[in-house]
Design a protein around this nucleic acid. Structure first.
Lengths: 157, 157
DNA sequence: CAGTGGTCGTTCAAATTCGAACGACAGTAC
DNA sequence: GTACTGTCGTTCGAATTTGAACGACCACTG
């Protein structure tokens, strides 16, 4: 384990360029996606991601904590967003039958049809700016890289 | 130009996996970086990025709008953060000599030494979770991919 | 010089985020 | 059963972000 106080290993030009490109691009893409979702459905990106995760889950329902892990947000942020989505009728809360502490977020029919309506336009943005611009080899390498980092970050918490 | 309403080109499994890995990883990494910077220096990531951009700029100063472009934030968010950094003594404002509307954000000596103090620990995180885990080929492919997307997003606005 | 359209940075209200603290419940040990 | 330790989801206050609206200024036109 290196000690950054005594061994400041700077990034070389190539590494720094990679990091900055990643950083700028993730922010720019986030901005663009947010804009598209807001215009198309009045949804924020976190809200959309919640709907997606629920739609993929067995029974279209997930425990709050598990959902928070999936969408990478704090528990309190999820509580807030589920409340918003509940007001909009896209999600409802159920108490967990096997654990009285637990709460299940459940995708409603309205939520499902909202997702069906919004997903194509959203995915078109993802295609237009990211997926369709990458060669098959770039796509493969990026996925591999992202997975390594994701695994490292998830297992370190 | 395809119409998402009539031609919903879904992402195949490989593409979807790539997109989700990118999304989760960028959020997880953002979280980890935020945590490290907060603990090490009481800085947020946006604040740190502002210091970096100013340190790299000629004369260690940049126009507000140009700086906002660089760090990918709204103008109002930048106004807020520059005010915070000014209170901390890391940045000061100057009026632009060539344009009375303009404001220059200038990195102070304290700001420069703060950056020197904080950068190694920050870059160590970037290394530990991203850079050092990637092969040279993955790094190259990721940079190429990110640049394509970044350029597309910057030129479309 | 007055007029016009655009850019600059700031202000404002509203929405969202986070971490810390909390009460409620689960699981285990004794 | 009682006590202890940990997890669950929520609440709270503080900090931050956003887009819209604003006044100030620039550059150009006539």
């Amino acid at each position: 384990m290196t000690d950054p106080r005594t061994d400041p290993r700077w990034l070389d030009a190539t590494e720094m360029a990679a990091w900055r490109a990643f950083l700028s691009t993730s922010h720019l893409l986030e901005r663009r996606i947010e804009e598209q979702l807001k215009a198309a459905a009045g949804l924020t990106h976190p809200q959309y991601e919640i709907l997606v995760r629920l739609a993929d889950a067995p029974g279209r329902r997930l425990r709050m904590t598990e959902l928070a892990r999936g969408v990478v947000s704090s528990k309190s942020a999820l509580t807030y967003q589920i409340t918003q989505l509940e007001k909009a009728g896209l999600v409802r809360r159920e108490t967990c039958p096997s654990d009285d502490r637990g709460v299940l977020a459940v995708l409603t029919e309205a939520g499902m049809s909202c997702l069906d309506r919004v997903a194509p336009g959203h995915l078109e943005v993802v295609r237009e700016y990211l997926i369709d611009r990458l060669s098959r080899e770039e796509l493969r390498a990026m996925t591999s890289a992202m997975r390594k980092t994701e695994e490292a970050l998830r297992s370190s918490v």
